[in-house]
Design a protein around this nucleic acid. Structure first.
Lengths: 237, 237
DNA sequence: AATTCCCAATTTGTTAGACAACTTTTTGCA
DNA sequence: TGCAAAAAGTTGTCTAACAAATTGGGAATT
């Protein structure tokens, strides 16, 4: 810190590339209904003049909307907005989740986790069970409770989802886990309660035992208890 | 043959734009682990030579991967693959779903629909209930059972999801409904059973009544019955 | 010898202009 | 009026160049 001017305390504006900025701008326009489904976007030429960037940048922005299934382009015709009812990607805002949103996302996750535990209890193979136990082990021996521990925790739930044999469960739980990752991290770092780790491990153990015993009802109940406890620990600090 | 050669019987290859094709190719490479998370993609220059296209096209392809949260680019450094654990979009293949995949997707949907019905029963407002009833009405008066009817059916489930007050439920159910839309359509068109409509309407009615009575258990049970019946009707024809 | 500093090579971000491929609109002719 | 050809408009692709940021190595200094 002797020389080299001090970096900004919070590096909030990281110089977002133009294409990304314009893409976000267009997403807002579409989602707020300013450009209704079925209608066409302004031409690339028009957009490039409007935003003061080259057509290349506009095309890269539109390219992203296409990837999200938000628009569809036809050569010679234009770029039209696809109705919300048949979009093919489910995406979360890149902005950090607010308190209310975290609660809502957890509410979406709960029935899935319960079903996941039930199905895992019914269908798991020996290898899949071992992976669940491994994640549990990794979590119990992790010293730093705030990073490696969270990863092992997420891995535990992911391993259960994989043991359902249904890849959609595995993928979607991984997706939700990633979205909640930051929230879990901050929640844990703010909590000084040293019992949390042992409590969490005990809850996990109940789940593992129920799955191992191939008892779907018990697995679902254990998972529900774990989630309710975790939600409390996360939303009230 | 005389002029304008006959178009291919099945227009399977519709002349996919190069950018889209390359994007899909890269997605496969990443998802199959050929380019592991944390490593960098080949440079844009290298990829453009490798695929025989201009750098512009490569950039548009990479732009799509960025939209999916699959990669991240840093000016001067390169484009690196993001670990699967923290992707921020959940997406289905654009290819039509196979039989097994439909079953798996329905299995993912079931616990969500049940939770959705339960929450709707607990929290719905008068207006939200009216929207559910409207969709039910629209379905009962729909003459063409194969298109307008399916839309009303999906609207019914979507209305229930909205009545939970949790926007994630609404969004995700809409997403799943859109993905299953085609499957439902073909399944219905192949079934000549005229009772299906009345059976479905009766099942829907049970759900509406349970929600109106603010009885979560009954709503969940009615939804479960409906889904099990619908699954049977869809997967066995 | 180790460290620091600076510069050159890489690599992504952006611009400009041009042409090709396709669609839509207009024009001109019968 | 009806219809085909031409023109204009729009997206897809290419090329060339420069800007901005990172990276690595070599030279200068300590």
């Amino acid at each position: 810190m002797t020389k080299g001017e001090a970096p900004p305390a919070l590096q909030l504006a990281v110089k977002t590339p133009a294409a990304e900025e314009i893409a976000q701008h267009l997403v807002v326009l579409i989602r707020d209904g300013m450009i209704p489904a079925g209608t066409k976007l302004p031409t690339e030429h028009h957009l490039s003049r409007q935003f003061g960037v080259s057509r290349t940048v506009v095309r890269e922005a539109i390219s992203r909307l296409k990837a999200d299934g938000l628009v569809e382009s036809r050569q010679g015709s234009g770029v039209s907005v696809i109705p919300a009812s048949l979009r093919k990607s489910f995406k979360l805002q890149e902005a950090v989740l607010g308190h209310q949103q975290v609660i809502e996302l957890l509410e979406l996750r709960q029935p899935l986790e319960m079903a996941s535990a039930r199905l895992a209890a019914e269908r798991h193979t020996a290898q899949e069970l071992q992976e669940i136990i491994d994640a549990q082990q990794r979590m119990s021996v992790s010293l730093d409770w705030s990073d490696e521990g969270v990863q092992a925790d997420l891995d535990f739930h992911h391993a259960i989802a994989k043991a359902t044999g249904n890849p959609f469960y595995a993928d979607f739980m991984a997706f939700l886990g990633g979205a909640l990752r930051m929230t879990i991290l901050t929640a844990r770092s703010e909590s000084r309660n040293p019992n949390i780790k042992s409590i969490t491990l005990q809850e996990h153990l109940s789940i593992v035992q129920a799955i191992e015993a191939r008892n779907p009802d018990a697995a679902g109940r254990a998972m529900l208890l774990h989630l309710q406890g975790a939600t409390l620990r996360m939303t009230t600090h």
